[in-house]
């Protein structure tokens, strides 16, 4: 039976339908966001330690960074 392709194995090409430019006066590249915006639209690739739950770990990050809200991508629990 052929193996199912994992999402990280899928290769995609970019097909251009129409050429156009983007105005430099609006928006900005993600990596160039100013500090506060960069944090508020940011994600952390965290190595979760054993012991606390995913929710507890996320709460710690929230406290360290003094944020209003954090979430996590997929519970890692016992």
């Amino acid at each position: 039976m052929p193996r199912t392709v994992a999402p990280w194995e899928v290769t995609r090409q970019l097909l251009i339908k129409t050429e156009d430019k983007t105005d430099p006066h609006y928006g900005r590249k993600p990596e160039e966001r100013p500090a506060e915006e960069y944090i508020r639209y940011g994600v952390i690739n965290l190595d979760k330690p054993a012991g606390p739950t995913s929710h507890e770990v996320a709460a710690w990050v929230k406290r360290i960074l003094n944020l209003q809200q954090v979430g996590h991508g997929g519970t890692l629990e016992a």
């Binding site: 940011g42 994600v43 965290l46 190595d47 330690p49 996320a58 809200q69 996590h72 991508g73 890692l76």
Partner: peptide, 20 residues
Amino acid sequence: MTGVLPITLEESRKIVQALL
């Protein structure tokens, strides 16, 4: 359990669905 746990900050929580 340990390992990769993406933490979404503030507005980024909206992309969680994509990670599923």
